[in-house]
Computed example of a mutant assay.
Amino acid sequence: MSEARFDGRVAVITGAGRGIGREYALLLASKGAKVVVNDPGVGISGENTDSGVASAVVAEITAAGGDAVASTASVATAPGGQAIVNAAIEHYGRIDILIHNAGNNRYAPLTEITYEDFDAVLDVHLRGAFHVLRPAFPLMCDAGYGRIVLTSSIGGLYGNNRIANYAASKAGIIGLSNVAAIEGADHGVLSNVVIPAAITRLADGIDTSSYPPMGPELTAPTAAWLAHESCSVTGEMLVTIGGRVARAFIAETPGVYQPSWSIEEVGRQIDAIRDIRDPWILPVVPSAHVDHITKSFAIAMEGNAHVS
C-alpha cells in the first residue's frame, strides 16, 4: 500500500493549537498538506485568548519543513468562520479539507445550567461547525472536491452528566455532517464525523491513572483518513478511543405495524417495537431519508391490503 499523502492539498483545522487538533495539524503537514492552524488560544470555558498557541504549532510545522499559517479568528461567530476560510484562500488559493475540531465546555447540571453557558458551548461546537462549513462548502462544490470532517463525541451519542450544552452540540453536528454528505455527493465532496477520545486538557481533574494509553496522537490517523482523497465513505461516523477504531451508526428496529393504535396497545407491543434482532441500517448517502419513508410506507400499504 502506498503512503497516504496530502501533497498539494490545503487543510483548515480549527482548534489546532493544542491537544487533538494539534496532532491533526502535525500529521497532515508531515504528509505534505498546507495547513491553516486555527486557534484563538482560549481556555476550556472559552474565555481569554493567546495568539501564541496557533503560532507555536505553525513554527513546529515549518521547522520540520512543512507549510502552515496561523489563524486566530474564533469559530463562534459567522465573521470569524469566514475569516478562517479566507485565510486558506488568501495564503494558498484554495481549500480542500475542513476539519472542525474546536471545542470548549462549561459543566453544569441540567437543573442549574444557564442560558449563557448553553449558548457559549453551542457557539463553538455546533454553530462553529456551521460558521466554517458555510463559506467552505460552496468553494469545495465549485472545485469538485472536498473532505469535511466534523467532530462529535460519545457525549453527543450517549449523553453524560453535567454536559447538556456539549451533548446537544455534538449530537447536532451529526445531522449537519449528514446534510453536507447528501448535498456534496454530486460534487466530489465527502463529509464524515470523527468521534475521538484522548487525554487532553479537557481531562483535567479526572483520575486517568487506570486508563489505557490515550494520547491524542492515537486519534489523528482516523481523522486524517477521513480527510484523505482515498476516503471511501461519506455520511458516516468513526469512533477512535484508546487505539480502537470503530463505526458508530444509527439504526431502527423494523417495528410493529397496526392500522390504528391506542396508548394501551403501544404499551402491550413495546417489546416487539424495541426488538433489535433485524435492524434497519440506512446509509445516509445515497438515500437513507427516502429509504426510511419508502420502507415505512410499504409496510403500511401491505398492512392495509391485508386488512381490506
Results as ranks from 00 to 15, higher is better:
210 S>F: 11
29 A>K: 11
107 Y>A: 12
34 K>N: 06
185 A>D: 04
2 S>R: 13
239 V>S: 10
97 I>P: 06
8 G>H: 09
172 G>Y: 08
110 L>M: 15
123 D>L: 05
124 V>P: 00
78 A>S: 03
170 K>T: 07
33 A>P: 00
177 S>K: 09
179 V>N: 05
167 A>L: 10
215 G>L: 15
212 P>N: 13
296 S>V: 06
229 E>K: 15
270 I>C: 07
203 A>Q: 09
33 A>T: 02
296 S>W: 12
94 R>A: 15
82 Q>I: 12
11 A>G: 03
273 I>S: 03
200 T>W: 04
83 A>K: 11
113 I>G: 08
100 H>T: 03
63 A>C: 08
41 G>T: 04
209 S>N: 14
191 S>N: 09
219 T>A: 08
238 L>R: 15
143 A>W: 00
150 L>P: 09
125 H>P: 09
61 I>N: 08
52 G>P: 12
189 V>L: 10
44 I>S: 09
203 A>T: 08
266 V>K: 10
224 A>R: 09
178 N>P: 00
254 P>F: 04
13 I>D: 09
224 A>W: 10
210 S>W: 14
303 G>P: 08
125 H>G: 05
122 L>N: 06
258 Q>F: 07
77 T>S: 10
205 G>E: 02
79 P>R: 03
17 G>Q: 13
229 E>Y: 08
209 S>V: 06
237 M>A: 14
38 N>H: 02
163 I>H: 01
268 R>G: 01
62 T>G: 00
161 N>H: 11
154 I>H: 09
184 G>S: 04
166 Y>T: 05
67 D>C: 11
136 A>I: 04
258 Q>S: 09
78 A>L: 03
139 L>H: 08
265 E>R: 13
274 R>T: 07
184 G>R: 05
164 A>R: 03
191 S>K: 03
181 A>F: 01
89 I>L: 14
288 A>W: 09
181 A>P: 01
166 Y>N: 05
241 I>T: 11
249 F>P: 10
170 K>I: 06
27 L>C: 11
239 V>F: 12
41 G>Y: 05
104 N>W: 01
268 R>N: 06
210 S>N: 15
292 H>T: 15
108 A>S: 14
65 G>N: 06
73 A>E: 01
275 D>K: 00
75 V>Q: 02
282 L>N: 05
165 N>P: 05
252 E>S: 14
99 I>E: 03
277 R>Q: 10
255 G>T: 07
156 G>D: 04
